[in-house]
Structures are given as structure tokens and as C-alpha cells.
């Protein structure tokens, strides 16, 4: 699928020859789009030609590959939400301060708001929609429902993506701020999970229930 965020009626494609021939450079160095502006706030503006940068990127989301041509400024988060319509990934702050946009990239959790789509060439992205569906819930999703680990639901996809990753991180032996020992394998304690989940803010305050949901899944996995 080719997604082009820019209305093709209002621009011309950049000339391919302006793209560097070096293989590793996928982006254009200076794609120029001519955009004619009409009728802005009721007054006739003179037509202008202004630069716009587009670049291509390919990655996989929830098992499906996407070849995209994006405004270079587009974050992974906005690509998912506005262009691919995976709206399960939420924009809470757009500045890496809340965790609502957490997705898994190559099985690691990241804040998709602080990442350009272009940084993900060849990556494998998993969003909340890729973990499970209402008819086929992921065990973590089911546990969140059972323990009422959410209220308004807006931070929930990020919490669940993070929770899935947290259990993997503990399994992989990655220590945390609260691990008593740096060299021994971290334990599946309530304190460990709370510390590791702290990058996901829940203003409704479902933390106590979320901890129980994660614990249940952890115990089943163990």
C-alpha cells in the first residue's frame, strides 16, 4: 500500500534525479513541491512556490508491510494514527512525557511520538491492534479487563504494550532502578513492575489494578 499524505492535486512530484544516487540514502535531499495557494482567510493570496520535503520509508505494522512517502516531519505516532488509521496508539502529550503512544518496534517498547517514521526503515512495528482484537484478546488485554486495569481507556493501549514488553524485559534479565542486585536476575515483584511501568501515566489512577493484571499474566507465564 502506498500512502501519500499530500494531496497530489496540489503538488508536483519531485524529480527523481534530485534524489541522491547513493543507495543508503532513501530520503530526498531537497524535494521541491510547488503549492499554489488560493483564497486564504478570504483574501486572494499570490501563488507561491514553497519547499516541502518528502521521503520514502518501508516498515511492517502488525504483520503488514507498508511503503510510505512521508513528509519528513511525520512521527511514527502520526503515521500510525493519521495515515494508517491505527488509532489505538494514542497521542497524550506528543513529547515523551506520558507513554500513551507506546508501541513495540522490533519487540522493544518505545514512545512513537519521539520517533520519525523515517527512522523505522525495515522495522517491525506492533501496535495494540496487533496484540489482539475484541474477539481474540491477548492475555494481557484479558487481564486488564478482568482486573479493571483502566478507566477512561486512553492510556490503556500504551499500558498494555508496555506491560507485554516489561515481562519480556524481566525475562531477558534487564535490571531496573529498584532491582536489589544488578548481577542477579530481576524478580517478578510488584515493586519491579511498578517501577518499569512508570513511563506510562494513568491519570484515572488505575495503577493498583494494572499491577494486579500484569501480575496475573506474569504468574501464568512463569
Amino acid at each position: 500500500m502506498l500512502i501519500n499524505p499530500i494531496n497530489r492535486n496540489t503538488m508536483e512530484e519531485s524529480n527523481e534525479s534530485t534524489i541522491s544516487r547513493r543507495e543508503m540514502i532513501v530520503g530526498t535531499t531537497a524535494a521541491i513541491a510547488a503549492i499554489t495557494l488560493a483564497n486564504v482567510t478570504g483574501t486572494q493570496a499570490a501563488p507561491h512556490t514553497v519547499p516541502l520535503s518528502l521521503a520514502k520509508v518501508s516498515f511492517t505494522v502488525n504483520g503488514q508491510s507498508h511503503d510510505l512517502e512521508m513528509d519528513t516531519r511525520t512521527t511514527l505516532l502520526d503515521t500510525l494514527r493519521e495515515h494508517l488509521h491505527f488509532t489505538g496508539t494514542k497521542k497524550g502529550c506528543d513529547h515523551g512525557q506520558c507513554g500513551a503512544c507506546t508501541v513495540l518496534v522490533n519487540n522493544q517498547r518505545i514512545n512513537s511520538c519521539l520517533s520519525l517514521a523515517l527512522q523505522h526503515q525495515g522495522d517491525t512495528v506492533t501496535t495494540i491492534e496487533g496484540l489482539g482484537t475484541p474477539d481474540k484478546l491477548h492475555p494481557m488485554q484479558a487481564a486488564f479487563i478482568k482486573h479493571d486495569g483502566y478507566q477512561c481507556g486512553y492510556c490503556t493501549p500504551g499500558q498494555i504494550c508496555s506491560a507485554v514488553a516489561v515481562l519480556n524485559e524481566i525475562k531477558a534479565g534487564i535490571p531496573s532502578h529498584v532491582s536489589a542486585s544488578l548481577v542477579e536476575k530481576p524478580q517478578l515483584t510488584n515493586l519491579e513492575m511498578r517501577e518499569r511501568m512508570s513511563g506510562n501515566i494513568c491519570r484515572c489512577g488505575a495503577y493498583s489494578n494494572i499491577a494486579e493484571a500484569i501480575n496475573e499474566v506474569a504468574q501464568k507465564q512463569a
Partner: peptide, 21 residues
């Protein structure tokens, strides 16, 4: 094992998501 101070400082910073990036 040998630079525990560094590991501890890193783990005290930001969040799991940010540290991954």
C-alpha cells in the same frame, strides 16, 4: 559487574521506553 554506578544512573533516568531509544 564492574561499572555498577553507570548501570544504576542509567536505570534511574527517564522510562523504559525512552531508554530503549
Amino acid at each position: 559487574r564492574d561499572y555498577g554506578l553507570l548501570a544504576r544512573a542509567l536505570l534511574a533516568g527517564a522510562s523504559g521506553q525512552l531508554r530503549n531509544k
